[in-house]
Design a protein around this nucleic acid. Structure first.
Ligand SMILES: [Mn+2]
Ligand SMILES: [Mn+2]
Ligand SMILES: [Zn+2]
Ligand SMILES: [Zn+2]
Lengths: 143, 143
DNA sequence: ACAATGTTTAAAATCATTCTAAACTACTTG
DNA sequence: CAAGTAGTTTAGAATGATTTTAAACATTGT
């Protein structure tokens, strides 16, 4: 991704192309699916020798989310995650290394969902499939 | 639920029937399905005129979880929830009032789940169906 | 260049949760 | 019923993720 297309991306979303936002947008929107936390992103930019405050990371992640460039995922581990895949989809969550893997909404079928309570409407469905290592077996009933 | 059966319940799980644990167990294990956070439970006992510290609520919720009397639910709102329904099941989450409603695992069917990555095994599947009020429509494409 | 507005940042604040260590209570033994 | 021991409760401090504040700084339009 060129510096120029990153500038355009930001401008198209009414965000000034500051040094900080350029760095983060270049990292995030390189075309590959990414799942980051504020901390993981902070560490990633630090590793590239770029210094920017954690508050800016939070600001920027929220701004990107507000303009529809990112989606927020809650309920994974202790921190909030941000997802460059903004399509409605689900996740594998590998608890052994805190990694998220996308599951396209189309590759999962949920049937027999009970009717919503009266006056309520379904806003969305989130499926999280927890993964662990084959070796570290869950304790079974008898032992 | 009698005071005595609450005592027995605690003893069966090697927990001394203290005043605090008796009050919490009586509230939680009355046979109805309950979803609580530490704060909501704290407020509930306070309303009954019982005083006990938030640290004790946390301690007790964890102890009850450890002995299998409760199940912890993560990923709902900002706080941890504890569930008196310890069977594997799913949830409706009403975002307008922060209420959880159980969905029995048997009343939902998930098919076509992609294969787990190599060396990984499925540890569990959590489905959260977000509910909102029929009136408060989500903004649609055109308006 | 100038003003206006948007952005970044260090530092403080917030909020849920956990930890610490001292006071207290329940259970056991004599 | 002591007294001892182990388990429990609690206030308050600590933690960790996130948000807020307000002052410095950068970008944009004129
Ligand atoms: Mn960091
Ligand atoms: Mn409270
Ligand atoms: Zn994703
Ligand atoms: Zn439940």
């Amino acid at each position: 991704m060129t510096a120029n297309s990153t500038t355009d991306l930001l401008r198209e979303h009414n965000l000034r192309p500051t040094r900080q936002r350029m760095a983060l947008a270049a990292l995030l929107f390189d075309g590959t699916a990414r799942h980051v936390t504020a901390e993981s992103l902070h560490d990633q930019v630090k590793d590239m020798g770029i210094t920017l405050s954690l508050a800016t990371i939070y600001n920027t992640l929220h701004q990107f989310t507000n303009v529809g460039l990112l989606k927020e995922i809650k309920g994974i581990g202790d921190a909030k995650w941000f997802d460059t895949n903004i399509d409605q989809h689900h996740h594998f969550f590998d608890i052994s290394n805190d990694h998220l893997i996308d599951i396209p909404a189309s590759s999962i079928t949920i049937s027999h969902l009970p009717a919503s309570p009266d006056g309520k409407v379904i806003d969305g469905v989130d499926v999280i499939v927890r993964l662990s290592d084959k070796s570290s077996q869950k304790p079974s009933g008898k032992n």
